[in-house]
């Protein structure tokens, strides 16, 4: 709590500080960026770093940041940014609901709102654009890759993320459909490990103890895949390229891609945290008074195969 208060206080002083400099250099574009806490996950850390490295004074921006996993605090920060007269409000909302009023205020004050990473339940007229990941497509890409492996039988251990989160819903959906449609696809166990590596380890350990056969582990993020692999290692079950069990993960953490390169894992799906180039593109168009081609921009996301991944891929896409 103390830390939070301190954070808010710091944020306010920063905003105040920027106001002063803004008067001196009027040609900078003022952006207020509201994001989730960088310690939330490796994905978020990469996301925050990407934004802070892009929206710099050298690039012609004067950016203020507010980090919070609490929706109400985020809304308070947004109001502050609007009062401070930012030109653009960039928003990754903690929760989909509750944003109508503050976004209406923004519109009245002439602040352009751009959503990134997460979408919200508000009228489309309230924001200029959104840059988001298509989680369902991430799932489809992964399942198509798996189908392309041509196994005689797919006995899948499906480890899910926190139930109801966009990533879980999207990534589970594709697999569920495929299992429903194909006779030789079976779910051995479908459990949520809530993004927790150790819980995933226990779930897989339990399947091993029960003696049931499986040949695929479909984990909805890298951490959980890592936990699953630890259970396999302890039980002496081989995994990876050309081995008994196929390992699939998501999020393209650097260490996970290295596991891929070493052949210990088979597939890793990207969830692109690098929205800043898209955001800059949109802002430049809006500044030039151009019309946007599309309101919702879905980022391109890749799936990596252990047999084709290169060191450059790890460098470029690892987070």
């Amino acid at each position: 709590m103390k830390k939070k208060l301190l954070g808010i206080a710091l944020g306010l002083t920063m905003v105040a500080g920027f106001c002063v400099t803004a008067n001196a250099e009027g040609d900078l574009i003022k952006v207020g960026i509201i994001n989730n806490d960088p310690s939330e996950s490796g994905y978020r850390t990469a996301n925050v770093n990407d934004l802070t490295n892009t929206f710099t004074e050298e690039n012609g921006y004067e950016a203020s940041f507010a980090y919070n996993n609490d929706n109400a605090e985020q809304i308070a920060a947004a109001q502050q940014f609007i009062q401070d007269g930012v030109d653009y409000l960039l928003l990754s909302a903690a929760d989909v609901a509750g944003w109508d009023t503050v976004l209406q205020d923004a519109q009245n004050e002439g602040v352009q709102v751009i959503l990134f990473d997460r979408t919200i339940d508000a009228d489309e007229s309230l924001y200029a654009a959104s840059v988001v990941s298509d989680m369902a497509k991430e799932g489809q890409t992964a399942v198509e890759w798996l189908a392309g492996q041509g196994l005689d039988e797919y006995n899948v251990i499906h480890i899910q993320g926190v139930m109801g989160s966009a990533a879980q819903v999207g990534r589970s959906g594709a697999l569920d459909e495929k299992v429903e449609a194909e006779d030789n696809w079976n779910i051995v166990v479908q459990q949520t490990a809530e993004w927790n590596a150790e819980k995933a380890q226990q779930i897989v350990q339990s399947v091993i103890d029960s003696g049931e056969a499986f040949n695929v582990i479909y984990a909805e993020n890298d951490d959980m895949a890592k936990g699953a692999v630890a259970a396999l290692d302890a039980a002496g079950i081989s995994h990876g390229v050309g081995k008994d069990v196929i390992i699939m993960g998501f999020d393209t953490n650097k260490w996970a891609l290295e596991e891929l390169k070493a052949g210990n894992w088979n597939y890793d799906g990207q969830c692109n945290p690098f929205q800043s180039s898209y955001l800059v593109d949109i802002i430049e168009k809006l500044e030039a008074g151009e019309e946007l081609d599309e309101k919702v921009i879905i980022m391109e996301e890749k799936g990596f195969d252990a047999e084709t991944i290169t060191d450059e891929d790890i460098e470029q896409y690892g987070i």
Binding site: Q202, S206, I208, D209, S210, L232, D233, A234, G236
Partner: peptide, 24 residues
């Protein structure tokens, strides 16, 4: 009763280890 079965086998590092539900 398979719940109480304990096996003795090698892990991926080649070390022998007891395993099974009770050990877990």
């Amino acid at each position: 009763p398979s719940f109480f079965k304990i096996s003795y086998s090698a892990n991926n590092a080649g070390n022998m280890i007891f395993s099974g539900y009770p050990i877990t």
